[in-house]
Design a binder for these strands. Sequence first.
RNA 1: GACCCCAUCGUCUAGAGGCCUAGGACUCCAGCCUUUCACGCUGGCAACACGGGUUCGAAUCCCGUUGGGGUCGCCA
Length: 472
Amino acid sequence: MSVVTRFAPSPTGFLHIGGARTALFNWLFARHHGGRFLLRIEDTDRERSTEAAVAAILDGLRWLALDWDGEAIFQFARMDRHAAVAHALMAKGGAYRCYASPAELQEMRNKAKAEGRSMRYDGRWRDRDPSEAPSGVQPVIRFKAPRAGETVVRDGVQGEVRVANAELDDMVLLRADGTPTYMLSVVVDDHDMDVTHVIRGDDHFTNAFRQTQLYVAIGWTPPHFSHIPLIHGADGAKLSKRHGALGVDAYRDMGFLPAGMRNYLLRLGWSHGDAEVISTEEAIAWFDIDGIGRSPARFDMEKLASVNAHYLRALEDDRLADLLAPFVAARIGRAMTAEDRGLLLAALADLKPRARTLVELAEGALFLFVRRAPDAKAARLLAEADPAKTARMVEALRDAAGWDAHTLEVAVRACAEAVGEKLGALAQPLRAALTGSTASPPVFKVAEILGRAETLARLDAAIEGAGRRPEV
RNA sequence: GACCCCAUCGUCUAGAGGCCUAGGACUCCAGCCUUUCACGCUGGCAACACGGGUUCGAAUCCCGUUGGGGUCGCCA
């Protein structure tokens, strides 16, 4: 039987980082085995499921290029099938009606907690005669879980784990309004979709026991379970919205690349020897359940950025310019022109090694499109520069035989020697004048790209500015 | 509280009894390169949670302690 995996998010919010990793692992596992990767939207909670969340999740998956096979399945649409399975089970004596009220259940839990017992449903309607049913109360259907013995889950990550059946209570299969609960729906859908391997977050681990019992009661074979440890925030606490559990769209906006994101997520909890930068092809070839670690990992933005940098630099310039356009546009407040793009392309090779994200890259490229006001360090550099020597440099530049980086450098070097300064004494003020910063790509390259007119104009403006605003 | 899981540098991890005076990556520090900042290169700081066993030998196996985490919904 060929491998079938699935990613089954509930559309109650964006696709967060943990979900993205779960999807990645399922995708990789299916692709590795030449199987199918399915997508199922678990929208049985009508209160909280939203169209917007569905769209956000699909968007996130597409952005990460985790393509699923076939159409996405919406769980709610299969509600009748789920209910039918529950009723069939009840007909076999594997489930029963429970008339306990929510208040009653809450009281039961409070009491159990107070007495130090596990907060489980006590099965009070398990063996009661239907004739005792209170009138006017719509019952829920509960699973008649085995009480003796134990349930064993052979987990791909956690190994063989057994839990006494006495620890598991009779879960609700069908709500009072007749709609199926998650626990029932997953089992029925995974079975009907021929899912062979369930790879999901560790927070579902205890569910595996309940679901296994259900599979057995219905007479189906459970899939292979693998529960991957959760991702924690940088502070070790559970990853919550306050601790970086952002939607993947937030990472996209921070300038991360899908490939960088995937690579980082892959290494968070999975490893293949010392491999760090792993191509998609390699990931598919190498991915296996054995490589998944058993302990939770912390999310580290620095490492994400570092991994991302590899992919940023590997990207071809034309493609990179496309990706960069919206980031630059956002910074300069207008769309990039063809001329802007030309400048960007010319500078990209020197800009790339200075950035780890698209945001950093756009920031570094900004001076190409706008005359930036000098930052504090640059302003000081300009103010402190010897006006006479700066004037000599401007002259040297103006009189340069050509306008390429090499020629300009030769000219300024000669000038520096003539005025008895090191190159840096002239080059740094030049950099500050052209870029508004003390850090930039090679300054003569910058001058070359900016062109003669713009370079001289920026120099004039800077000299004027420095004269007006003396050292602070 | 009950049940379950986890535990190697600050972080991600390699390690499946001797190959480990514990390796790689990120971060940090130093040096080289250099017109700046980066990149790159070289080097450095830094870990087997603790206590018992088992064994000729334990980061690796067992038990306990401690510390983290997850689950206990008519949510998924």
